[in-house]
C-alpha cells in the first residue's frame, strides 16, 4: 500500500489526479472490526440488493450473479446482511 511519495516536479499540473479509480490501491479491508459478511450461496437468489446498497462497491457481481465480497475493501458495516431479504448473508466473527 505504501506508494513512493512523489516530489513536486513529478506531480501532474494543477494538483489533479489523472488515474481514475486509483483509490482501489488503498485497501480499507483492515477497517473491519472483527466481523465480516459471508454468503450462503444456496440461499442467494441473486436479487443484488446487497450490491445496490453497498457503500463501498465491495460486492462482486459477474454474469448477473452475486459472487461474494471484496474483502480488501469491505469495511464490515453489515448493511448487506441486514438488508438481504432471505438472510443469505451472515456477519461472522473474523479470526485474527
Amino acid at each position: 500500500m505504501a506508494e513512493k511519495k512523489r516530489g513536486w516536479k513529478e506531480l501532474p499540473i494543477g494538483a489533479i489526479i489523472d488515474e481514475a479509480g486509483s483509490s482501489e490501491k488503498f485497501k480499507t479491508g483492515d477497517w473491519r472490526e472483527g466481523r465480516k459478511p459471508v454468503l450462503n450461496k444456496d440461499k442467494c437468489t441473486n436479487c443484488l440488493l446487497c450490491w445496490i446498497f453497498c457503500p463501498d462497491s465491495a460486492i462482486i457481481v459477474s454474469n448477473n450473479e452475486m459472487k461474494g465480497f471484496k474483502y480488501d475493501y469491505c469495511k464490515g458495516c453489515g448493511i448487506c446482511a441486514n438488508q438481504c431479504p432471505i438472510g443469505a448473508i451472515e456477519m461472522v466473527p473474523e479470526e485474527e
Binding site: G21, S23, E24, K25, F26, K27, T28, W31, R32, N46, C47, L48, L49, W51, I52, P55, D56, S57, A58, V61, N64, K70, D72, Y73, K75, G76, C77, G78, I79
Partner: peptide, 21 residues
Amino acid sequence: LKELSKQGDFLTSGHRACAGC
C-alpha cells in the same frame, strides 16, 4: 440491477467514508 451491474461502478472501492455511510 442486473443490467446496471454490467457497466461497473463509477464510484470505486477504497474511498474512506465510514463503514455504512
